[in-house]
Nucleic acid binder design. Structure first.
Lengths: 245, 245
DNA sequence: CGCTCAGTTGACGAATTTCAAAGATGGTGG
DNA sequence: CCACCATCTTTGAAATTCGTCAACTGAGCG
């Protein structure tokens, strides 16, 4: 377990001072938990009345059909907050899995709902995070229902890029990408085979390239936006926090 | 505009005393707004920092791709609460449309974030509503990505039935259903034509019947659960409030 | 060196969309 | 009460997209 001092040195705290710092200012003894890549933190239908604040790494929320098919509902990135359960809804709707090694804080209901003025400010930030998560899920659902394979893959890549860029983890379209094609298929609702074909097509057309096995390079954001049906500026307003600096 | 007296007489207040009554106990002068079927309340990308409490009727949250294809993200039913925007995320991710004549209350950020003890209780209820909305969207997204047409349509019918039954608006599988096949296609991610084929198949197999044009009768819940890949008890725990009576 | 796992590619088939046209229903105004 | 109109539903046939199956490749690792 680590304490505040360590937290504030993390790149996340530097990039997103408001949420992480605000929380730590109130809960000075917050316990930081860690999990390695591939670890399942919570299973669908488990008891859960808490929330989660991700400090480092990638986390997937997913669900499974009886036949074993898995769909990733949302991916949390460093600095993100998620409501997992509530006192009146104490069941986790999703399985939560670490897509990379992660560091996170578990937030209990009582740790955010108090009358103190600082908590009021904190709740306001949490509400924003929830709205942005809903916005991401909505965009995903839209393309799942009405978009083709190219649209879904382009959207996924753009979403990650835009969110990572805001916390300095994507530069000029280049970022570390800890999901393989099978996982990307679970996120986009496609088979791993079709994800492969779509990525290869993008690569042939020069839209993307993958310089290393664990990273990706987006070369033509305009083309991706066209394919995904996204207006990049409007999209940023919808899924990024208004920086308070 | 109507006041508390009228509200408490509504079937919703009787069925869900906790949320609606708790809110009205704090905001005694809450203004009730109305809208007729088909009316758009908010457009995607509009400014919005508020929430909404639905008293009567059905409301759809939807998004549109540049080519005009529409996907319904979630449907609110009487008694439901939804976070539309937040102070730190003041953009509506969805277009909000009345699927039937509706009555609702607009809730501003300041009306729920105060230090008072009653507001603490109210926020706890709101948090539960948000978790349940996320659970519904997750179930929908799962079937959109990995389910076939029968699974999606069966899920949609079951979701409406289970939620309506909890507020006495579905009895023995019979309920008023204000969506046409085109709208149901927007919800399930199918063309209206394929929704039609799927419904007709269900009807041929005796799983459902539609006694009037605006109502539907679910005859075989077990068969629908099998098709949707749902465990009805687990599903109820996930998307229904724990009644406090 | 051989093992395993992720990625790649082609051929085929199944599910769903699109297009087109024909019924059914309900509302409206004469 | 009837005729007409717009909207919704139903059905068939053709086209498309994507999944499945199977085989092959290539990288990492003991």
């Amino acid at each position: 377990m680590q304490k505040q001092g360590t937290l504030l040195k993390s790149p996340v705290a530097a990039a997103y001072p408001t949420l992480v710092e605000t929380y730590l200012h109130i809960q000075k003894d917050a316990a930081v938990e860690t999990a390695e890549k591939g670890r399942t933190l919570i299973h669908e239908d488990d008891f859960a009345d808490h929330s989660m604040l991700l400090l480092d790494g990638w986390v997937a929320f997913s669900k499974m059909l009886p036949d074993g098919e898995i769909q990733i509902i949302d991916v949390m990135l460093p600095g993100d907050f998620a409501l997992i359960g509530a006192v009146n809804a104490p069941v986790a709707a999703c399985t939560i899995e670490a897509l990379s090694d992660v560091r996170f804080i578990k937030i209990l209901p009582a740790q955010a709902n108090g009358p103190e003025v600082e908590m009021e400010q904190l709740r306001s930030l949490f509400a924003g995070e929830i709205v942005r998560m809903q916005a991401r899920t909505s965009e995903l659902l839209l393309r799942m229902g009405k978009g083709n394979a190219a649209s879904r893959v382009a959207y996924a890549l753009l979403e990650f890029h835009v969110r990572l860029e805001a916390i300095d983890l994507s530069k000029d379209g280049y970022f570390e990408f800890p999901m393989n094609q099978h996982k990307l298929g679970e996120f986009t609702g496609l088979s791993n085979v079709h994800v492969c074909r779509t990525l290869r097509r993008f690569e042939r057309e020069g839209i993307i390239s993958h310089p290393t096995y664990t990273a990706i390079q987006l070369n033509d954001l305009d083309a991706l936006c066209m394919l995904a049906g996204i207006n990049l500026d409007a999209f940023r307003h919808e899924i990024l926090i208004k920086r308070s600096k």
